[in-house]
Design a protein around this nucleic acid. Structure first.
Lengths: 183, 183
DNA sequence: TACCAACCGGACGGGGTCGTCCGGTTGATT
DNA sequence: AATCAACCGGACGACCCCGTCCGGTTGGTA
């Protein structure tokens, strides 16, 4: 929460943008994708006007927040040493950290920008899956869509649970799902 | 949606109650546990006042709606011929039919009445699980809590999906989870 | 210094919900 | 017919959110 005096004037734009993204990250994390935009502006110490000037709609704000997440996933996947399990673990960690990221993974929403995010995640899973088919013990019938389904199941479980219990719940959930993947 | 004239007067109470439960069932099904109470009263063709007179709070209305669901589950479980799979199938069917029932199954909520509902479901799963340990092929380490976890995973998946896709999604989800149960 | 483009905060209108409160209707009872 | 307990619908005040609009501030520039 920034003070209200320092963010006026000509070159406050960049700082305001950063503050908005930070506040949005927190609100999205706890409240989900439908978090109140007013609350985000409030927490950022910024007027409603500035919020809408920087981010014309809720989706563009969400993309600014969660692009970091997907970028981190892509960076991990690009490391040849990283395994499919590593990737699933990071996704799980990210979902545990933010209800809105869970919401984005489901994206039954119509906005194509949100579907693109899911597409990127799916592609990463697909890539690692192909690599793992050779290296590890992967059940041959498993598809990338199956993996995405599993991710969504775990995510949906975490969505409606107390943050403190998420890590343990995720472990139990993956313990049940892993046999279906590794055979 | 009832007409507005027939539900005045001294003995309209019972009819209003029925209309409210019906409207609530529909609204809860599509909007989830947080459905608008105003909308429910509106759809029932009943004033706000009557809604709150019959059901002082949202939970009591939800209980009136979903007691039927749990009763049906208990009836099925009481049939000796019914299997654990039958029970899981009916639960899945009920969750697919109502977002609010999904919400109730998670009940990270503090209200003890909601937790009781989950408790009843858990007990049913526990009973059938014990029976199935003798009859069918059940992995011995599986507990009732594991089953509840699986149910919640599938439910959480269905919660954020288009109703039309739910049946197929549920099938795929259970296909992945079944190995963890039957071993 | 005087100007002004760029940017800002927050008020505002429109819309929704919640829960309460009350005047009005109904029909059983006397 | 007169009464009145039981019950009803919906208005109402308090609250919140969304998205726009505008007067006000800032600081670079001439």
């Amino acid at each position: 929460m920034r003070t209200r005096r320092e963010n006026r004037g000509r070159n406050a734009a960049a700082a305001n943008r950063v503050a908005l993204i930070g506040a949005a990250r927190e609100q999205f994390a706890s409240e989900g994708f439908d978090a109140s935009l007013s609350a985000i502006a409030r927490q950022a110490g910024v007027g409603q006007g500035s919020l809408y000037r920087h981010f014309p709609d809720r989706v563009s704000l969400a993309l600014a927040v969660f692009d970091d997440n997907v970028t981190a996933l892509e960076a991990l996947a690009a490391t040849p040493a990283s395994t499919l399990d590593d990737l699933l673990a990071l996704i799980t960690e990210q979902t545990a950290a933010s209800v809105a990221f869970i919401d984005m993974l489901h994206a039954s929403d119509e906005d194509p920008r949100l579907r693109d995010v899911v597409g990127r995640v799916r592609d990463l899973l697909d890539g690692k899956l192909r690599a793992a088919r050779h290296d590890g013990r992967i059940r041959p019938t498993v598809t990338a869509d199956d993996l995405l389904l599993a991710v969504r199941m775990v995510a949906g479980l975490l969505a409606k649970s107390v943050p403190g219990e998420r890590a343990e719940l995720a472990d139990r959930a993956w313990a049940m799902l892993r046999p279906a993947i590794t055979g």
